[in-house]
């Protein structure tokens, strides 16, 4: 099962929602569309679902053109942030809805519904109405409903955003487990980079209607290619190329050939800075924030303001002088 997207465009009036989108989702992958609100990720998901028509570009599933097919003919499953269950139907009727549209025989329907309710651990609630369930339970019903028809592709539109933190963490794992077990290719929209990192095989980081970078969570975090991705995926120290040339000349060689020197910045994640206490150290710690397992340090170094993170087991005090070092494999060059 391969979903192939080529050069997709969509405008709303004069506003460009997405442009030049190329992407493929294959096999049993879990792909996250990650980006700030308004970046076009939901528009892309809705186009894939068939709820919105693209202006140009192609969309194929196993080589078959999807563009002319309405949402109801694509055979996908979808889960929205707002549960969106039928309030007048029981949990079992909700889960079996897609099957009854497909005129599946009643006995097969029963069996499939029971199977899925088992999977999302809601067996004893099959006769309840959505209004009697908690938010997390309702969202599990919605997931079961989307999976009941054996969708060719599962689409998730911020499915966990309406839930409180504890329920969300539990459901993340559950959703990922179910998806792995069934092996259904999945595309999830989220604005939460932590959620994307914990769940996705691959992250598609989007900004202003374009794809900034595609890669595994590790790649996006450690090898961001643009300043936007570096910022969005977590905190970082960004050093202009000129500064690097002056202070860390040994690193300047690693700059990619195609990158404009004036635009290039070196991205160093805070936990990759190595700090050692040293009387004559060039760095001076200005502030320490204790965060439990780790501590976050602000320091002055060669006229720069740096952010570092270390295990909270290490002993530092504000005003202390430290040596700062970093290795080439711990940083990445990004373009602004």
């Amino acid at each position: 099962m391969t979903l192939q997207i080529k050069d997709l465009h969509k405008c709303f009036g004069t506003q460009t929602a997405i442009e030049h989108i190329d992407l493929s989702v294959a096999g049993t992958e879990f792909v996250c569309l990650l980006g700030p609100s308004g970046c076009g990720k939901t528009t892309l998901l809705r186009i894939i679902a068939g709820l919105l028509a693209a202006d140009s570009g192609s969309l194929t599933l196993d080589g078959k053109n999807l563009a002319s097919q309405p949402a109801s003919a694509r055979g996908f499953g979808i889960v929205f942030q707002s549960y969106s269950l039928f309030p007048q139907m029981t949990v079992a009727q909700n889960v079996g809805y897609g099957l009854s549209i497909r005129r599946t025989p009643a006995s097969a329907q029963h069996q499939r519904v029971a199977e899925l309710l088992d999977m999302v651990k809601l067996n004893e609630f099959s006769a309840c109405y959505p209004g009697q369930l908690s938010g997390g339970q309702q969202q599990r019903v919605a997931i079961a409903r989307a999976l009941a028809v054996n969708p060719a592709l599962l689409l998730l539109d911020e499915p966990l955003s309406a839930l409180d933190a504890r329920v969300r963490a539990g459901l993340r794992r559950e959703l990922r487990d179910v998806q792995r077990r069934l092996g259904i290719p999945t595309l999830m929209v989220t604005h939460d980079q932590e959620e994307a990192m914990t769940m996705a095989d691959r992250i598609v980081c989007m900004n202003r209607g374009r794809i900034e970078q595609v890669g595994t969570p590790r790649e996006l975090y450690l090898q961001p290619r643009t300043r936007f991705v570096a910022d969005f995926m977590g905190q970082s120290n960004l050093l202009p190329a000129a500064t690097v040339k002056a202070l860390l000349p040994e690193l300047i060689a690693s700059i990619p050939a195609d990158m404009d020197l004036a635009q290039a910045q070196l991205c160093v994640r805070p936990e990759r800075l190595r700090l050692t206490t040293h009387q004559q150290g060039a760095g001076r710690i200005t502030d320490i924030t204790f965060l439990g397992s780790i501590q976050r340090l602000r320091l002055h170094w060669q006229g720069l303001e740096l952010l570092a993170e270390t295990s909270s087991a290490m002993c530092f005090t504000p005003g202390e002088a430290v040596n700062v070092s970093l290795a080439a494999q711990d940083c990445a060059w990004v373009s602004a």
């Binding site: 679902a49 068939g50 949402a71 109801s72 003919a73 979808i78 929205f80 549209i101």
Partner: peptide, 12 residues
């Protein structure tokens, strides 16, 4: 969202 969900589930 419920309208959209119905469409994706195959409802006309």
């Amino acid at each position: 969202a419920l309208e959209d969900a119905t469409a994706v589930l195959g409802g006309g």
